[in-house]
Design a protein around this nucleic acid. Structure first.
Lengths: 330, 330
DNA sequence: CAATCATGTGCAAAGAATGTACAGGGAGTG
DNA sequence: CACTCCCTGTACATTCTTTGCACATGATTG
């Protein structure tokens, strides 16, 4: 899902063998017996694998090496495979997951199916929030995490869900209690997701938080998840921090990226000054990015000061990937 | 802990063997003879364990290592198992294969020792917070949770730690960033602890939150942990809730206890009115308890209205135990 | 003390799961 | 054309699991 043309069939067998470490017979066996991938064919009938195929095969190999049955994992989607891998990888019994449908379930339905699944999750989550049913909400979120890949999860479920909850609250359809309860569940879930997506070793550090005066932290949490998903080790500073503090933390943590989220006081007049101050305090050329509606009006102003405004999480995702010092393959 | 999809059968035997340290024969014996777990099956009939199964097996192994009879514990639910483990105090014999310690290996290996350990943890945690070292902080908290029983953990580590951090912050020794980072870790930890201590089945529900105007939520979180530890299913409403909302939630959840924490605006003049309102709105004779310095001045006033002020978490613990409608034994 | 439980472990035969090899025939390419 | 790579289909070998039963050891009980 990285490259735009990830699904273009183009790699012949030998490339796949080299890149996955699986031998040719085995690749054919996995395809025939478990439908692990479905490579295209050349005119003459030879297999042509896509980048996505290769990625999936790599994940499958890792899972099999960890002890999973190929028959059990071959049919699953990328998102599930990644989560499984992470959970199992930290073989701690700390986190769990839960599933509804047995393995025989859906084959790679493609992006359209994912969308569909995503909106269904969204609806159920909203209902659960309305009913203040934390357990259903939590289990739905988890199920969504299993069924979707991380970016779809964030873009199609979490963000819309938070918006909907905010809306319903503003309209008085949702009492503050429901809203709080839902928030708590979401926050815990995001914390968990952050932990799950965080890279293991010593990845470069990204600082995430909200500027002084901004106390809404969900934007920052989502940003953390996105950034962690791209391979950064995220240090979550929390909300409402003065520039000096952020700078201090950046120095101490030797941060390679600072991301801030400004949601609520909409046209906060202090915001540009605050950010400029931060820019000045960060001696090293650490990139600073800001997102959120409160920052939008100042986009140009900020850019002039070397602070980039990002319109949405997709931009953030891309930026996080670009800034990653050590852009490894796959 | 909770997150949640623990019931998807997917792990083959060998993974379970590796992760639990139990051998295959024994797993089958426990299943056959005591119904310890009921793994799903693959099409070919091979066992597929869920994450929940694995967790249960891990707990069973620990209990057996501590001297419990497998036949006595195999059939119990997760919540009971956790409780049992905690009761046995620090499961110091964590890694030992031999069931060396007989069942009599009694609890308090000396309260004094626990105290000692607790203060050591406290010191390390404070240092970690000062250094903004989330990883050390987190791991120390986890270790403390393992080493101490829940009440010691809360009374001798968590509460003093929060106090210390607050103090250092007030004195300017700790920057807001450090404070926030520490808070985030603590909150996550408390969330986890809450999940761990929560009983499984359908225990009676306790509502926990803070009254309108009170936005500091750690008191409520600690209260949640304490109450959950006594066997309630806690619904955490979050901070800053008007009486009407709390009442609505109580009705909806059929709460058997409402606990509120009021920390900050110290002598909040609205507090008694707010609570009286709540008392009025709760038609059923649901007990309401309040804690925290902000409520202390009104203790007598409130008591006259049928709302009990509790001076500390120990009192809360006792009260929670008393109020528990004595349901099932174990 | 003897009989009985409780519980961990060992074994054999049958079946599953899965990696690999081989044969005969095209495909791709210079 | 020659040479290598790849395709399909089939067969095999190996390693895991499963079931059922037996056994050893230690604790409990009559």
């Amino acid at each position: 899902m990285t490259l735009a043309n990830a699904s273009l069939p183009q790699f012949p067998m030998r490339v796949v063998v080299r890149r996955t470490g699986l031998n040719a017979s085995l690749l054919r066996a996995w395809e025939r017996r478990y439908g692990a991938v479905e490579p295209g064919r050349s005119e003459g009938g030879q297999r042509l694998y896509s980048e996505a195929d290769i990625q999936k095969l790599v994940l499958l190999k890792e899972l099999v090496d960890e002890g999973h049955n190929i028959s059990q994992v071959a049919g699953r989607e990328m998102g599930q495979l990644r989560l499984l891998l992470r959970q199992n990888g930290r073989h701690s019994a700390r986190r769990t997951h839960e599933g509804a449908t047995p393995s025989t379930g859906e084959v790679d339905g493609g992006a359209a199916a994912q969308e569909d699944v995503a909106t269904r999750f969204l609806e159920v989550c909203v209902d659960a929030a309305r009913e203040m049913d934390t357990e259903v909400l939590e289990s739905q979120l988890n199920r969504a995490a299993m069924a979707l890949n991380p970016s779809t999860l964030v873009d199609r479920v979490l963000v819309p869900f938070l918006n909907r909850v905010g809306l319903l609250w503003a309209e008085g359809e949702l009492g503050p209690a429901s809203e709080h309860v839902a928030s708590a569940v979401i926050r815990r879930f995001l914390d968990w997701l952050l932990g799950t997506l965080s890279p293991e070793g010593n990845a470069p550090v990204a600082l995430v938080g909200t500027p002084a005066g901004h106390r809404h932290e969900f934007g920052a949490l989502l940003a953390s998840v996105v950034i962690a998903g791209e391979g950064w080790r995220v240090v979550s500073l929390g909300p409402d921090l003065p520039a000096s503090e952020i700078a201090r933390a950046a120095a101490r943590k030797n941060a390679g990226l600072v991301a801030l989220s400004a949601l609520y006081p909409r046209e906060d007049p202090h915001l540009p000054g605050e950010l400029r101050g931060l820019r000045r305090l960060l001696q090293a050329p650490v990139p600073i990015v800001v997102g959120g509606p409160a920052a939008a009006p100042f986009a140009d102003l900020l850019r002039a000061d070397g602070i980039d405004f990002l319109a949405d999480l997709a931009e953030l995702r891309e930026r996080a990937r670009e800034e990653l010092p050590h852009s490894k393959a796959f």
